[in-house]
Design a protein around this nucleic acid. Sequence first.
RNA 1: GGGCAGUUACCCAAGUGGCCAAAGGGGGCUGACUGUAAAUCAGCUGGCAGACGCCUUCGGAGGUUCGAAUCCUUCACUGCCCA
Length: 426
Amino acid sequence: MPDNAFDELQWRGLIFDYIEGVPELLAREKVTVYNGFDPTGDSLHVGHTVPLIALARLQRFGHTPVAVAGGGTGMIGDPSGKSAERNLLTREQIEYNVSRIKVQLAHLLDFEVKSNPARLVNNADWLLKLNLVDFLRDIGKHFTVNYMLAKDSVKTRIDREEGLSFTEFSYMLLQAYDYLHLYDTMGCKLQTGGSDQWGNITAGVELIRRVRGGQAYAMVYPLITKADGTKFGKTESGSVWLDPEKTSPYRFYQFWLNTDDRDVIRYLKFFTFFTRDEIAGLEASLAEHPEQRAPHRALARDMTARIHGETALARAEQASQALFGGEISGLSAAEIADIFADVPSCDLPAERLSGPGMPLIDLLVTAGVVPSKSEARRSIADGGIYLNNVRVSDGAMSVSVEHALEGQFIVLRKGRKNYTLVRVIR
RNA sequence: GGGCAGUUACCCAAGUGGCCAAAGGGGGCUGACUGUAAAUCAGCUGGCAGACGCCUUCGGAGGUUCGAAUCCUUCACUGCCCA
């Protein structure tokens, strides 16, 4: 690890833009740095983690990280990067979300160290106290509409058909006020965020200069891109969450393992704490033996262990091996239950399989493998459905008790890697 | 408040009385190939039956017609221009 935080971030490709003086600031003093996040859901997803992990990197260099939950701003909705007006959340929803996210943050930031413990605050604590007239006099006075209109987040929305509401237009002022508040109360001098936050962050820097004559700083990270042009952090089944209830450790592990070759080294730099030498080694391995996917595995292992722990990682790896390694028919009931613990599953009363059994078409729908019977028929016709890992050719077949492994499980699979476990309940 | 344009399936977008479950593209799903890849090629892509066929869908509601995504009325929403 280099001795300079800025160099470290730069090497990792994390510096997209910054206000002049940031490298010197980070080298000169231990600063309090904050990064906001949106509590619009009750869990963070992988896309949220880059700025938060970056905060952890700064913490390792002795700086003090502050995670700011946008409990107040979340009630408004940030127009940045949004194509349409945001749905507003209630105060209760947001408070619940913040409480859930707090647990996840503990995996990323160190709240325990004596010297520079991380902190979590909620901007609802100060924003909700604001009074409109005071706000307009004290804050609004310092911004011209021209300045606000010039911000990209506003400009792109005005150019689009949908436009944006006054509420969203005002968002940047609230975030600017956040920065001022944290500058005043915690001596916070640096705000970080995704590159889409640049306008909001610099508005805060501007405000601090005007009302306090102080110098505050801004630094933003690049948007995480994917080589194939799709959005990072999404899979067929939606966002990849940190909450194991929403995204199982197995799926989480698989998400990272499936990283595109062209992206994997960059992601190692973004997400892990591997050293330059370690990453260089993995890069060499990728070049020489791409089929071994050593960097993918390292990335998946590291992330899964950090977020879900070693036990969950071990299980995710075991399941991956069994599912993609091959044979499942020889496994015991206990092994099956264990391997598929994380895989989507459903319960089915044994009576439904009695006698001639249940049409496979119906079972596929019941188990949620496909959304409709038409889709089920299509998938079978395409050769994309497997029963206990054997491709199904007969679209009219029925599933009976005999098909259940150990009398207890039926393994349905659609395509290469979508497994569903049916538990037969007596 | 006035004028104009628009609202079609997951998205973009054709369609202006029957040949429309609705062109084309994107996306998605599946197969072949492979490294649980990329690239490429092929099939599929509203629902229920899967044989004929039936049902729901072209912003909402109502109407004209043997028959409407297509015509009329009205309402809603969006954009542009005028006040």
